[in-house]
Design a protein around this nucleic acid. Structure first.
Lengths: 227, 227
DNA sequence: AAGTACGAAATCGTATACGATAACTATGGC
DNA sequence: GCCATAGTTATCGTATACGATTTCGTACTT
């Protein structure tokens, strides 16, 4: 349940069109890592696997292309798009901005129950650090932020956050693995963020903290990459 | 030239696929106002107009749907999506955030030539106010901001800005017409923004000013709508 | 042996065809 | 006269088919 793509229009699946199904199916495979970056997405093959024809599959792939999850080349085909360092920077920078805004907008709407829930998740993350469970850590990290954003009053902004997450999904938990100490820091920042929200800090402070939380991960990655 | 949709991948049209052409054609018609909100986009009709078949047209429409320019209903069809007050709020709020970030990121890269160009555009906007030419005013407004963002180092953020603009395009110049005095104020804010950039103000200050510039337009609209 | 040219295979791009669904219209019952 | 219902039409959704383009392998030339 923690392994699904995030942010797909989560309505009931009443009478989904095949293109929707294909979209969801391929997206899920990319996000959960079945299709790794560079994987070649052949329309005919996917169509056969799903039992559909190529037209809806093509539509699904183009949609995923628009979200940046696959790279599509005319008359050549689609591949799952990896994220090179530059793309990673762009994505993280954008995320830092939209997450900052999302957090600031959500903060006044987060009740004590949600705070407690987030805190519990964060506690579990701490435990993951001790047992060294990066996969679960990353999933919990998503849960943590989901609680924060759950009530974001602006769906457009929330959508941008989700897109960024999915974009990063294929290299999930990379920073946890590759940047020593960052995860510990991240957990501390989470707690600090919760306290700011609890104390009803002004929007600007919360925005900056949330933005910094993401930016710090990026910086840690960049510093490491430079070595 | 000022009337075209903004931000479409502006590479040479070498061997564009029909779905690309259809996308561009329909998008242009929406942005320039040929297809007004509520206009019913019948696949077969558009296909015939363009001389294509329905499949690429369908793909184009779905793509426009993803950008929020059209509303698509299963087994019913597509209509050009108007923006109701709520949508307008969401869009403007999102724009204020991404434009703020885009401006702050671009500021250090804007040279004196670009500043002069922007200032000239802003001067012309002033003249439009005297002659009461809202259409040209809006076009110039786009030009002004284009100069500012031209060198935004993060293409993802720039893309988000463009999307917001296209989203607003169908009700372009509305605030100029409907909110008295706002346009004058806007021109003044432009000049203030230019001075901040010239003086190499810190990123935070610039971001806040740019964000406020957009937020003020939204507020003016909301205040007016409430009456 | 390396490079080039040609041909075959794979794959995409789109037209056409037909089935499915929803909107519309006309008819009959109350 | 108004509402419910059946039939018709419009439109979408997708399968299939085929042409277009690229890629890959092979044979030929130097």
């Amino acid at each position: 349940m923690t392994e699904t793509a995030v942010g797909s229009s989560a309505v009931g699946n009443a009478a989904q069109s095949k293109s929707e199904q294909a979209y969801a199916a391929v997206k899920a495979r990319i996000v959960e890592g079945t299709y790794t970056p560079g994987y070649r997405l052949v329309l005919a093959k996917i169509a056969e696997d799903l039992g559909f024809s190529v037209v809806p599959v093509r539509e699904a792939i183009r949609r995923l292309e628009a979200e940046g999850l696959v790279k599509f080349e005319r008359n050549v085909g689609a591949t799952v798009s990896g994220i090179d360092p530059t793309e990673y920077l762009y994505t993280m920078q954008t995320l830092s901005i939209v997450e900052g805004a999302a957090t600031a907008l959500s903060a006044p709407l987060i009740d004590s129950v949600a705070i407690a829930r987030a805190r519990a998740v964060n506690q579990e993350m701490r435990e993951c650090l001790e047992h060294f469970d990066p996969v679960r850590f990353t999933a919990l990290n998503q849960d943590f932020h989901s609680v924060l954003f759950e009530h974001c009053p602006n769906p457009h902004i929330l959508d941008l956050v989700h897109r960024g997450w999915n974009r990063l999904a294929s290299l999930r938990s990379s920073t946890f693995r590759f940047v020593p100490g960052r995860a510990q820091e991240s957990v501390r920042e989470h707690e600090a963020l919760l306290q700011l929200i609890e104390n009803a800090a002004d929007a600007d402070t919360i925005e900056k903290a949330a933005r910094q939380h993401r930016a710090a991960t990026l910086d840690a990655y960049l510093a490491q990459a430079k070595q």
